[in-house]
Design a protein around this nucleic acid. Sequence first.
RNA 1: GUGAUUGUAGCUCAGCUGGUUAGAGCGCCUGAUUGUGGCUCAGGAGGUCGCGGGUUCAAGUCCCGUCUUUCACCCCA
Length: 427
Amino acid sequence: MKFQSVTGTKDLLPSESFLWQRIENVARSVFERFGYAEIRTPVFEDTNLFLRGIGETTDIVGKEMYTFKPSPDSDESLTLRPEMTASVMRAYLQHGLGGQFPVVKVYYIAELFRKERPQKGRYRQFWQLGAECIGSALPESDAEMIAMMMMIYDELGVTNATLKLNSLGDAETRTRYRAALRDYLRPHYERLDAVSKERFEKNPLRILDSKNPDLQEIIAGAPRILDYLDEESNAHFEAVRTYLDELGIAYSIDHRLVRGLDYYSRTAFELVSADLGAQDALGGGGRYDGLAEQLGSPKPIPAVGFASGIERLWLAMERANLLRNIPQKKPDVMLVAQSTKAQTWIMKTANEWRRKGLVVEVDLLRRSLKAQMREANRLGAKFAVIAGESELQTRKFQLKNLRSSEQTEVEEERLFDAIKAQVVESL
RNA sequence: GUGAUUGUAGCUCAGCUGGUUAGAGCGCCUGAUUGUGGCUCAGGAGGUCGCGGGUUCAAGUCCCGUCUUUCACCCCA
């Protein structure tokens, strides 16, 4: 084969696109019930936006971004977006949305790009659905964000998953905690693996994430960030928990759920699926009160958001057998022609009926009557109308119900209503 | 980026230690009724065996490279 899709990218074929649409429709429906409006931003941005927004030391910026120049001799550097939060905040600041609305609530369903080695549920071009709530520092917005995310999963039927919750406190909390964690780990330093040793200096919080079984004992004894929370963060966290309890949303505290970047604060959450492998995070999010300032805002702007990988959501639904029950739109009727003259009648009639709202199929290959009937059956059409010489003369057509196999003769002017009535009935 | 793994018809796969025209199921097409689907039966189309080198009298089968798939690591904002 001469051409194929590039490594880490995937085609969404017609046979399954309706499943994808189902996920999108459920998500949109929930977002809108929460009063969130869609935002669409360009797929590429000034590279500096992500350098500032994500942090220059991270792997993403270092090796996982698709960065390019608009022209060979340009000084400009552009990057395909590896995430949405920076873009949304940029748009918020650029258009002064905060000046028009005290709280801005937006959602997106967007494709993102990261140059990672592909594996299960992880592609180089992938889709996320997510939301950002900008302008409130209060726990109500955290709780609402989590509730919204959970409602989407719930309505899609994804229930075999655990919501993990933690609080990162404020910047000072993390400084104190990081110091405490290093103090704790220092006596065990020699027992750490190479990766953890490197993290010890760079980002000791990440050591808590290590999957190395030899380290679990050490990790289990590590101090917990929740014990280092400042008073306000603690109150905030308690409030979020109370709201979740009241809303009937189950969660488990996971003090190992951490985020390394400085603009994160307080609430962090993640939904982990039991049906997936190593890439088991379905979605997650948290509070990022420090991001706006990093992107040049003169004052801090509190915000909270979540994002969810659609490919992984898909995978989880597949594993849980949830994709099988999603109905596919089938044709209401197939118009079957038996001669060239009938072909003309069919073209004309199909067009009229489609205008009036029916889903009408017509054979485009001039196949035999038999083949057209077979096609009607394969497409799952509810009815077939057979038009041949005699029908055109008598203006009475054969109407066959392909479910019951009943066939009746119907006058031309009554055909549409006869089909319409039964199609509506069968829904 | 590291380590392993996969690649034969549209799809899922078989093909023993290298040996004649590469097979099956499903799907697709045609017919069994010159005006009718689903079931059954009978035919049929469809394959550069990922690609490029090499070894050999002979390679889908062995070797090397490359691309791709998958799994894990790194990382996951």
